[in-house]
Design a protein around this nucleic acid. Structure first.
Length: 227
DNA sequence: ATCCGGTTCC
DNA sequence: GGAACGGGAT
């Protein structure tokens, strides 16, 4: 049985999530896209907005190159030239190749083989690839492999520090443990919760001049209470 | 702590 | 036209 404190936080998280859903509706993230596209998107979106990524994905699609097998046979310079909109295009072209060659070497190029690993092994495996950090690994696991792991990003940290549920010095791992301790390990829930967080961060809980008055979860928020 | 180096918002 | 955006490697 859980102690009172843990149970209390679970309840608050649950209320927060339902308030978000009530305002924004269920966020159907990465619907209808292939696993390849999700992985490519997860790498390309590092440190840039999704707008930049969409442009690059569209161009890759126009060139019939938006799959891992196609990118495998495309040289880095060509890939880089097509994904210019994602800022660090040379690095990212290399990262895409790193992912693909790791998959080739250890999993016969088959995602199903890689994704057959359990969550922890899969994460460790992804983190071996140069260019795949925690957030990218977890995004791939949650949205492409469809296994329950809670994705942390700077939005998550900003929101939950403002709420008063997290401390400013919590690192990625501590933050992730917090969510995974307090929430049931459901893929659907983790996928949508993260999407709701992104939605809130962009629409209300912005870095500068957040729109607290109209925020759907202001009633739970220390930051709002202190204003 | 700095590099990477396009796009968006003011 | 300049700041802000913000993940990963080193």
């Amino acid at each position: 049985m859980q102690n009172g404190e843990t149970n209390h936080k679970s309840k608050i998280l649950e209320k927060i999530y339902h308030s978000l859903i009530n305002r924004f509706g269920f966020q159907n993230w990465w619907p209808g896209e292939t696993k390849d596209e999700i992985i490519i998107g997860a790498i390309l979106t590092q440190s840039v907005s999704w707008k930049n990524v969409e442009k690059a994905i569209d161009i890759l699609k126009e060139n019939k190159l938006c799959s891992l097998s196609k990118l495998k046979n495309t040289d880095q310079e060509t890939i880089a030239s097509l994904i210019k909109s994602t800022l660090y295009y040379n690095q990212k072209a290399k990262k895409l190749h790193n992912f693909i060659s790791h998959l080739e070497k250890k999993y016969a190029g088959k995602l199903e083989k890689l994704f057959a690993l359990d969550v922890n092994k899969l994460r460790a495996e992804l983190l071996k690839i140069k260019g795949i950090g925690k957030e990218t690994a977890d995004s791939i696991i949650l949205y492409a492999a469809e296994k329950p792991i809670f994705v942390i990003d700077s939005y998550t940290k900003r929101i939950f520090v403002r709420l008063g549920l997290a401390k400013d010095d919590w690192n990625y791992q501590i933050l992730q443990n917090f969510f995974q301790t307090e929430l049931p390990a459901k893929t659907d829930l983790f996928q949508d919760f993260h999407a709701q967080i992104v939605k809130l961060a962009k629409s209300y809980c912005t870095k500068k001049q957040p729109n607290c008055v109209n925020c759907p979860i202001k009633e739970f928020c220390d930051y709002y209470a202190e204003k």
